[in-house]
Nucleic acid binder design. Structure first.
Lengths: 136, 136
DNA sequence: CGTCAATACTTGCAAAATGCAAGTTACTAA
DNA sequence: TTAGTAACTTGCATTTTGCAAGTATTGACG
């Protein structure tokens, strides 16, 4: 029978979660995505200065894991917007736990507007939009 | 003025939390400590087979971060027991968030008795105790 | 006394991940 | 044609991981 046991280490939920987002950058990308950032440039520029090759790699992994979704928002020069899937949004609880713990036990740290309001639907304004505004 | 800004990346609570426990093993050690494991051998043997050098390193880091506490429980051959500080216990909420997320979104995973009951005060029985049992 | 066994770590070294800088591709405005 | 922006990719040096084996301490056994 198909025993279906692709677990790297064990069946522990914690261990397997860490195999997906247990590194120093993945959850920061998810955090920024929750905050409303959507393009590669926004993620690369605004964060804690994640190296661009790491960002590209994390986005690929997170997409493969079904946590982020990549959709083209423009055709001519194909540009992609990254958004969280329900699975990715659910990581907000983990983020929130980290925020609470960090704020309480690491003096000086603070939460950057961890509100659910920032996940509203806006278009990737400015940047690439500016281009075709003049054309018509 | 003493601006006190020892932050590696930013003042974000998430980023700083990840700088402390944002790797694949640290939280698993905390998990096992929450489950009642206390000695180096128990941690090394029972887990998802953490390499022993990594375990030693993580215990040092977690101790330096004020998350675990190392206390001798025996003098002759000095043996240490590792326990969680309040700061370390508080990571239980983060673990719990991971468990919930993992169980929901990673099929097949499960929580290993994540009960707070296991943190009661027992002695590091067996192991080193067996030795002097025969003496009397 | 010599050897074995157990606990708790270290050390060596190959393999993988990370981080910085620079390059590439696509396309458009001037 | 030149310059500029967005989105990546590539090279390479440094760091971290992981596996295996070794070390140190002490009691047990013969």
């Amino acid at each position: 029978m198909s025993t279906a046991k692709p677990f790297t280490r064990s069946a522990c939920a914690v261990a397997n979660s860490l195999d997906v987002v247990g590194d120093k950058w993945s959850l920061l990308v998810v955090r920024d995505l929750l905050h409303g950032k959507r393009t590669y440039g926004e993620l690369a520029g605004s964060m804690e200065r994640i190296p661009t090759n790491i960002l590209a790699d994390r986005l690929k992994r997170l997409e493969a894991a079904g946590i982020v979704q990549r959709t083209p928002y423009q055709q001519q020069p194909v540009r992609y917007a990254y958004t969280l899937t329900p699975k990715g949004c659910a990581l907000g609880d983990v983020l929130l736990a980290f925020v609470r713990w960090g704020k309480k036990y690491i003096p000086g740290t603070l939460a950057l507007n961890q509100g659910p309001a920032s996940v509203t639907s806006e278009e990737p304004k400015a940047s690439a939009r500016r281009v075709r505004a003049k054309r018509e």
